[in-house]
Write a protein that binds this DNA or RNA. Structure first.
Lengths: 130, 130, 130, 130
DNA sequence: GTGGTCTAGACCACG
DNA sequence: GTGGTCTAGACCACC
């Protein structure tokens, strides 16, 4: 379902949060979907259950999932999800662009990079259609 | 010359690195410029000299400055500066755009954000000119 | 008859207790009324019968209902009901007000909040009458 | 500085959060005040450092404090504090009043309770003045 | 079985 | 010395 990158310098729990965030906000896990249990996912990734627990706690505080005692964790309703997701991302994006401006990176260079990133995505879809 | 934001979650030495990076790559500190001495800057910011030392070490490793024993640290030649600066930034930028695509953020939304960021900058300059 | 909110962080059995408490103390279920059977209610809410059992046990311990073997659970006499209900609530209320005072919340602000809450209620009733 | 109530059924870390929240929002710890270090406070209360760590994490996420690596945790600026504090409290208060209405508790009874709570406070101050 | 809390003890990065 | 992360293992409440 998800995997870890031990080369990544960020803490493990943050990687887990990140991974699920993309799955949920991207729509791969619609509202109501049950997440893997704390213990099971910990076993699969061969890390400590507490670490998963912490990741889920973070996701809960961001309103993306909710726990039901004795049953598991589930994806929240779409309203919360969309609100949280894009807002936070855009803020991050803007501050990076701001930094780019300070470094005197050409505006058109940034735009062309976006173009190529999104074009790749389109090509992928085209390939599947063929 | 530079200042710190203690609310910022990043380590202090990283903030110092960041600040000088912008000044150097942005062109505000041309090649050959002498950086403030470790001790003096530490006093001004009222932090530990070790912290400044570490920041300068990092800048040196990135090829942005070079030390001259007994005299201080100086900004490197322009070639190094440009190479280091934009390359690293663009990589960071691309990976963030990639993330945005995963979250299904509209491409045009990102571009419009860049537009508004850079436009603000232009307006600022215009105001100063007037 | 009653329903559950899985987004609610409290345990399910506590929600069930809460719901019946309001119905009984509020007067919607007068003394002698028969509660739904454990099995039936569990089926309706599609949860484990043990959970309902525990909720009824709690209500019994608080003196709000009493079981008759082989026949079901029934609402207690009015004396018990009133005594239990308001006393516990007022204690909870006072401790919250105490906390508000510690946070330096304006007394009049609290009173105005009460006003608006109860006014809404009155309006609701008026609307129904119309 | 703060103490624990082991009779309280809530988790320890939540009690710690609560205690500091009152101190900070109530104004007893103005912006910039340093909180006790994680280890030291853990020793004083004779509980595990992780538990304090978690409490501080929660306070940070609510914007009430911010950590500086290698230095300690500090109280945030007043803006955040006030915004977080009263808003959350009032929401809690309203939902309790709502519950009271459902239980058909007399509105005037609630108001008189508030009166007596706040009057006590006033008397305290009067005593000190004398 | 599930999530939630806590302890004990360890290691790391930062200052 | 500070905070931040992680592991191992335990106990509880809930379903």
């Amino acid at each position: 379902m998800i995997w870890l990158d031990y080369q990544d310098r960020r803490p493990i729990y943050e990687q887990v949060v990140e991974k699920f965030k993309v799955l949920i906000i991207g729509g791969a896990m619609p509202a109501g979907t049950k997440l893997p249990s704390v213990r099971q996912l910990a076993m699969e990734l061969s890390i400590n259950p507490n670490t998963i627990q912490r990741a889920y706690m973070e996701l809960e505080q961001q309103g993306l999932i909710y726990p039901v005692k004795g049953r598991g964790n589930f994806v929240s309703e779409k309203d919360n999800v969309m609100k949280v997701g894009h807002e936070a991302y855009l803020q991050e994006f803007c501050s990076l662009v701001e930094k780019g401006r300070a470094l005197k990176v050409e505006k058109d260079l940034l735009i062309s990079k976006i173009d190529s990133c999104y074009k790749e995505g389109k090509d992928d879809r085209d390939k599947r259609v063929q």
